[in-house]
Amino acid sequence: MSAENGKNGTPDTQAGPRPEPLRFYGTTWVHHDDGYTARRAGLAVGSLAVAAAACFVLRLAYQGLQIADIGSFVSLLMIVMFAVCSALAFRHTWSAFTRRPDPDRQASLRGLLAIGFVGSLLAYFLRTFTEAPGEKLHRAEYEKAREEYERRTTRRTGNPSKKRRRK
């Protein structure tokens, strides 16, 4: 990271680890400043609006299948597929807010998460009511890094060579 904090080009006086920025929030999640609450409200509304628009698009796709008269089995299969993928995507996205997902597992679930994108959007929407999505995980990691930094940089008091020896 740079030596500037981004405000007026002033140098950052805080030594040690810096917080990792969250998507859409930057580092405002640390002190809940610079429009943090407005961003949470806006992103909650936005994610719900995108989820509603996605459901509308899926409904159009379903109506297209009905018009094509491909049969009730394929229509039922499509509904079940989107419902299951959305539920799994919701669960995966929700758990990713509290712990880092395994990169290999994440790569293998990429297709499922793409199909169940509505579940991911709904998880994001619901999480914004309690915190910025991922804030709890990032805050725990940041506080742990700060504690380790403080532990490493604390100085001993006094000169150890002048310490009295026990006889």
Rank of each mutant, 00 (worst) to 15 (best):
M1P: 00
S2W: 00
S2C: 07
E4H: 01
N5E: 12
N5G: 13
N5L: 14
N8W: 10
N8L: 15
T10Q: 12
P11I: 13
D12C: 11
D12M: 03
D12T: 11
T13R: 04
Q14M: 07
Q14P: 03
Q14W: 07
P17V: 08
P17H: 08
R18L: 15
L22Q: 03
L22P: 01
R23C: 06
Y25S: 03
Y25M: 14
T27Y: 03
T27R: 10
V30L: 06
V30E: 06
H32V: 11
H32P: 07
D34R: 12
Y36L: 10
T37R: 04
A38Q: 07
A38D: 08
A38G: 05
A38I: 10
R39I: 15
R39M: 12
A41K: 09
L43P: 02
V45A: 15
G46C: 05
G46I: 06
G46D: 05
S47M: 10
L48W: 00
A51W: 00
A51S: 01
A53W: 01
A53Y: 00
A53F: 04
A53N: 03
C55K: 00
F56I: 11
V57A: 11
R59E: 15
R59N: 14
L60T: 15
L60I: 13
L60P: 04
L60C: 15
Q63D: 13
I67K: 05
A68V: 11
S72K: 01
V74T: 14
V74S: 09
V74K: 08
L77M: 07
L77V: 00
M78F: 09
I79V: 08
I79Y: 01
I79E: 04
A83K: 02
C85Y: 02
C85N: 05
A87K: 00
L88M: 14
A89H: 07
F90E: 05
F90L: 14
F90T: 08
R91A: 15
R91Y: 12
S95I: 12
A96P: 04
A96M: 12
A96T: 12
F97N: 08
R100F: 06
R100P: 04
R100S: 12
P101S: 06
D102T: 10
D102W: 06
P103Q: 13
D104C: 03
D104E: 13
R105G: 04
R105C: 05
Q106F: 14
Q106L: 15
A107G: 03
A107M: 08
R110S: 01
R110Y: 00
L113G: 06
A114Q: 08
A114V: 06
F117C: 09
V118S: 03
S120Y: 06
L122I: 14
A123H: 01
Y124I: 15
R127S: 09
T128A: 02
T128W: 01
F129T: 10
T130H: 05
T130S: 13
E131Q: 14
G134P: 07
E135K: 03
K136R: 05
H138L: 15
R139L: 11
R139F: 00
R139I: 05
A140V: 11
E141H: 08
Y142K: 08
Y142D: 08
K144V: 01
K144S: 10
K144F: 09
E148H: 02
R151S: 15
T154A: 06
T154S: 02
R155Y: 00
R155H: 03
R156V: 15
R156P: 08
R156I: 14
T157A: 10
T157G: 07
N159D: 15
S161W: 10
S161Q: 13
S161G: 06
R166S: 12
R166M: 13
K167S: 10
K167H: 09
